[in-house]
Simulated assay, not measured.
Amino acid sequence: MEIIRYAELKAIPWRNGGGVTRELARHPRTPPAQASRQTAAPDDAWDWRVSIAEVSKAGAFSTFAGMDRVLTVVDGELLLLSVDGAEHPLEKYRPFRFSGDAESAGALPTGDIRDLNVITRNGSFKGYTSIIELSKKRAHPVFAGQFGILLQGQATVSPGAAGGVLAGAGSAGGPTGLPATDIPETERVELNRYDAVVGADAATPEVLGRGFLAVVSIDPEAETGAD
């Protein structure tokens, strides 16, 4: 069972000084020599990336040519996002999809915000973000190709039964939760705010608690070609 601890991630400043970004995961992973760089310049050496940004100043967002973006405000009240001149008021916990090719900028009418970013390469992967309310009675599974990110509240994660329960799983409409199993307290690992659980289909991690969880799904897109 893999947990990405938010407190251990490096904060990389934006080039315009408007905020910082912490990267939870990307594919393919950046070689260590690149990961140690202090710049926040965007690159195209990956096919998908999941990150959390702290936005403290209005201004332009980076463009990601050939990419698809899903942005979700996870802390703060409101982000006014301008995409190719059209303004979109983004409230907390409401995912918004837009093109990475677009000219985009953000304004902060109610103060600083944090946002969860899921960026995927068109034609290779498709990203989805869902916000679910956790329960102390029904554990929520995190399957392979998914990340479960604790946004608010208190929660623990534990490995489920080998092989997990896959029926109905997937970004298009999976189960709302599994009955909480009688797992010893010693096998439950506490999550802190913005920690991410990496999904798996064997011993599928199950999150239990009170609060809100972002479930990010990264689905490969089917290749198409001539017969």
Rank of each mutant, 00 (worst) to 15 (best):
G59R: 13
G17C: 14
A60T: 14
Q34I: 08
V142K: 02
G18T: 10
A65P: 00
R37Y: 08
L213C: 03
W14M: 05
D227S: 14
Y128D: 11
G18W: 14
G18N: 12
V207E: 04
S158D: 08
A58M: 09
D112G: 02
K57S: 13
H88D: 04
R49S: 03
A58P: 10
Y128N: 09
S36F: 01
L80P: 00
A139K: 06
T30G: 04
D112H: 12
V142Y: 08
S135Y: 06
V83F: 12
L78M: 13
R22V: 05
F143N: 13
V118C: 15
A25Y: 08
T72A: 08
Y128L: 04
R138L: 08
A40F: 15
N192Y: 01
T224C: 04
D75K: 15
S82F: 07
I119R: 05
Q154L: 00
G163L: 03
A144D: 12
S171K: 04
V55S: 14
A144I: 00
A60W: 04
R94E: 13
P42Q: 05
A33Q: 12
R69M: 02
A202N: 15
I119N: 05
L108I: 06
A33V: 12
D75W: 10
K92P: 01
A162E: 15
A53E: 13
I119G: 06
V118S: 04
E223C: 00
G199R: 08
D47F: 04
P159F: 10
Q146H: 09
S130L: 03
A105R: 14
G100N: 03
F98P: 01
P109W: 04
Y128M: 04
N192M: 05
A25Q: 07
F64S: 02
F143G: 01
E2F: 06
L178I: 12
R97P: 09
T72N: 13
M1I: 10
V157G: 05
D201H: 11
F125M: 07
R138N: 13
R193A: 04
T186E: 15
S99I: 01
A226Q: 06
P42W: 13
I131K: 02
P159W: 10
T72I: 11
L9E: 03
G168I: 08
L9A: 03
P205C: 09
F98E: 10
N117A: 09
G19I: 07
S51K: 08
P109T: 07
A203R: 13
G209Q: 03
G164L: 10
G225R: 06
G153F: 13
V197R: 05
A35M: 13
E8N: 11
V74R: 05
A214G: 06
Y6V: 00
L151F: 06
L80S: 12
V165F: 14
E91D: 14
L208G: 00
P31E: 10
Q146T: 10
T110R: 15
R188D: 00
L150M: 05
E23L: 00
P95K: 11
G211P: 00
G76T: 09
L150H: 07
G168H: 06
L80C: 11
P220L: 05
Q152S: 14
F64C: 02
E133V: 06
L151R: 07
E206R: 15
